[in-house]
């Protein structure tokens, strides 16, 4: 039974951050992630007639995005893509002669399980964020995720600092409750 309607006018507002977060953990740069999200929305527009309404819009868009990400890796792993890769074995400094593996910093001790758990945690945070009123979600993201200064947010959104802290307080209270119910326990 078709329960979900398609409303492309709201896609950017409702799903762009979620899709971007989904993508940035799977590709190497913000630019590529933005391009893939943009391509996903455009592909969604083209194939709107295929939307049956059985899954939510977000699930449907994520399935398109997954294919876009796979296509992206296929492209860069193609012969042409490989030919475009340029690597320098010798860096010209004191590390000359080190194997490439040795030159790559071990970014973290994170195991595959940790990584999966963090991805799930991120998804849960976005689930809870989607329940916030738009303004609260916007201010919370700017302050907490993007790390903007209080003053910068106030200027951008034309609100006072005390207003901002009230919004942050409400957002944090709702999010903490939601996360406690679904994750933190």
């Amino acid at each position: 039974m078709a329960n979900h309607k398609i409303e492309p006018n709201n896609w950017i507002k409702l799903y762009s951050d979620y899709l971007f977060n989904y993508t940035i953990t799977r590709v190497s740069s913000r630019e590529i992630a933005q391009d893939l999200v943009s391509e996903t929305f455009l592909a969604g527009l083209k194939s709107m007639s295929n939307f049956k309404g059985k899954a939510s819009e977000r699930t449907w868009l994520v399935s398109i995005l997954k294919r876009k990400i796979i296509d992206h890796y296929r492209k860069i792993n193609s012969k042409k893509g490989k030919a475009e890769v340029r690597m320098s074995y010798n860096s010209g400094d004191e590390n000359d002669g080190d194997w490439l593996e040795e030159q790559i910093a071990d970014s973290s001790d994170m195991t595959a399980q940790d990584s999966m758990e963090n991805t799930e945690l991120g998804n849960q945070i976005y689930e809870c964020l989607s329940k916030l009123p738009n303004k609260q979600a916007q201010v919370f993201k700017m302050k907490t995720i993007l790390g903007y200064e209080t003053k910068a947010i106030c200027n951008e959104l034309n609100i006072t600092a005390s207003n901002l802290w009230v919004i942050i307080h409400r957002a944090r209270t709702t999010l903490a409750e939601c996360m406690e119910k679904n994750w933190l326990k």
Partner: peptide, 16 residues
């Protein structure tokens, strides 16, 4: 706990 979860998940979003 919320702050710790945010840091652990390293969530990202688009800027304005």
């Amino acid at each position: 706990k919320l702050t710790q979860a945010m840091k652990k998940a390293e969530v990202n979003c688009l800027n304005q």
